[in-house]
Amino acid sequence: MPEPILNIRGLEKTYKGGVKALDGVDLTINRGEIFALLGPNGAGKTTLIGSVCGLVRPTGGKIEVFGQDLATSWKNVRRQIGLVPQELSFDMFDKVIRQVRYSRGMFGSAPDEARIEEVLRSLSLWDKRNAAIRELSGGMKRRVMIAKALAHDPQLLFLDEPTAGVDVELRRDMWRQIDMLRDRGVTIILTTHYIEEAEEMADRVGVIAKGRILLVDDKDAIMAKLGRTEAHFTIDSPLAELPAPLTGYPVHLEEGGTSLVYRGGDGTGKGKREVAELAQLLTREGIAFSGLETQESTLEDIFVDLLHEPVETAA
């Protein structure tokens, strides 16, 4: 039975200028899961995170963290929450280790040099501990942000585009970090523009656009529901009609019978299997084909599709 760690109901935020950044968001996050929040620029991801973390004052709705109302128990609750914001921001002139200690103290945790060392080592920052932050590379600076957020051992961690502007190697490194945190039982909510990141890391995925949650589901379920394989067979001599053995498949003819198009599958590999079967059937029927193109829809396609469909159901 999943235990909810964060419960958001009817959350609204209208900024002073009149921009409605959140428009009735309902979202439940369970303990120990990794939740990826996907959405285009300006969808409201940062605003949503800011509302939970105390950077933004919601204009409506209710937030419960660890079963406590955020509006009244914010002080207890925040000790357990960590935030890595989208932008790099700290006292650039300070030393790495001092900034990490500072964060730990600010969140009310007792000094613990061993834990600070552990955090710095896990992020490959230990050798740089006495460097001024401004001397570090961009990727290293981002790690310092993460180290600061982890310094007080939060139970719930928000990562706002943790891998923006980070090279491939560092990104993989970051994913390993997230995996380690998952093993420690930390619940993680991350926002990202990189679909592969959500596919790689997340247990569940939520899609947000224009301040509304369009879809929330298990990553695999989303793939199963919307994952599609598309295949184009280029047939040598035009077919007048679909050969009988093929009629059970989601196929049709295009371009005067010179192209056989398959659209199906559910993201579990069924699509690829059926395309292989089709190829064998065509060969067995003596239908020669000179080309085969297949395409798997990614989370990105799903996401783009969703954004272009009218909103049907909000999870």
């Binding site: 973390c53 105390g54 609750v77 925040r78 921001s89 700290f90 006292d91 969140f107």
Partner: peptide, 9 residues
């Protein structure tokens, strides 16, 4: 850097 102060207890 104020984000940290605002998100802290």
């Amino acid at each position: 850097a104020i984000y940290e102060l605002l998100s802290a207890p």
